[in-house]
Design a protein around this nucleic acid. Sequence first.
RNA 1: GCGCAGGUGGCAGAGUGGUCAAUUGCAUCAGACUGUAAAUCUGACGCCCUUCGGGCUACGCAGGUUCAAAUCCUGCCCUGCGCA
Length: 422
Amino acid sequence: MHHILKGMRFAIQKRMKNTLGRAGALETAHGVIETPAFVAVGTKATVKALTSEQIKEIGVPVVFGNTYHLYLEPGETVIKKAGGLGKFMGWSGPTMTDSGGFQVFSLGAAYGKTERSKIATHLQHTNKLENVGMLSEGVLAKIDEGGVTFKSYKDGSTHRFTPERSIEIQHAIGADIIFAFDECTSPEAPLQYQREAMERTHRWAERSLREHRRLFSNSHELENKDTQTLFGIVQGGRFEKLRKESARVIGKMELVQPDGSRCGFDGFGIGGSFEKEDIDTVLDWVNSILPEEKPRHLLGIGEPLDLFGAVENGCDLFDCVAPTRRARNGSLYTSRGLIAIENARYKNDFTPIETSCGCYTCKHFTRAYLSHLFRSKEILSNTLASIHNLYFIIHLVRRIQETILEGNFARFKEDFLSGYQG
RNA sequence: GCGCAGGUGGCAGAGUGGUCAAUUGCAUCAGACUGUAAAUCUGACGCCCUUCGGGCUACGCAGGUUCAAAUCCUGCCCUGCGCA
């Protein structure tokens, strides 16, 4: 039985002048994503504190689950039996899964570090390989050529991910867009290690692609498997030479199919670690090389101010835990910058978080109420704050998309930046 | 009235002669958070001086012992429990 692989349709509708930015539309089996778009992170098949009904109302275009976490619990077979990630969580829109590559970093090199951000602000570069922490005691992830051996952060049990296993799990989970298994390195990793890791990530990318195709050709279940698409991930840290090399290798990586046709990745993830100031530069290097007709997902970024630069430098999709995590920690977005809702000054502030905001929270509740919910640790605080923050960031990116189409992105950016204190 | 237990920083509650301006939790006041080990984490928290550091006042009240007391002694005040 031979299926024609539909592949993913991505249409660029408008390109910005003098930058790499563009607006487009990405078609999935569960709906069209207008890009640029912000992807809501739903690691464990839940956008924390929100129901699928709520995320739909907020306007979330895609939900981003995590292979490692879903594999640990409830296990991919449960999700497969449920009918896939979307059905499992009662979400009818598009879904994506991360490959588990980020956990190589957060459970490996970053494990136990007070500073475990992938965004470095005060980097102390080193040339010592041991700083990567790949083999040290207590670390929960160990990397070798074949894959990564993990210890569960939950019960300490040992598990192993290979590119093939990650893809197999992602097929079972069944998201519309899945990612190749990669290694996200520490921002502190030296050039030599970054090169090693990048080259390994390239070999893993090819194995991921091969396994993805193999599972398709072996599959007797039609379902919607032939609509699942795979993104390859560009790495290379903060090094120009590596980033460009990675973009070239991943961008043109292809397999020859048994029928003679060639297939590469359906889109690209841009991963890894950055110094805050370098993000735009790195994106410019990478996106000038990646095939422009395919979508690019900037992994794990970002904050409002990061998004403008990322869009101008050619990215189409973004996911970030910031809005939901910040929300749960009482840090709320406003057009003038973040506010810490628990601060004493909001105890008697009976205005909404943002008067002009159209979200459910702002339409019904005051800062004083939110402040009270957080201070008294009421569970509703998480939900109301998450609704607001997600709405804020999703609509910010939606405005970006609209203004690109309308041709006044530059104006919108200027207006936003003039008000927002980062 | 008698017996027993006890009075410590906003609260709870450690400490029971020096290393105590005093453990810890809560509360309070700030800060952090970027492919979620995160409803988490960090810091400050008697007063004064510029940070290091230094000075001052403190463990119910008043005296005392001692080189040295939140810690020992005496008296007083107060609280809880039990007995009359």
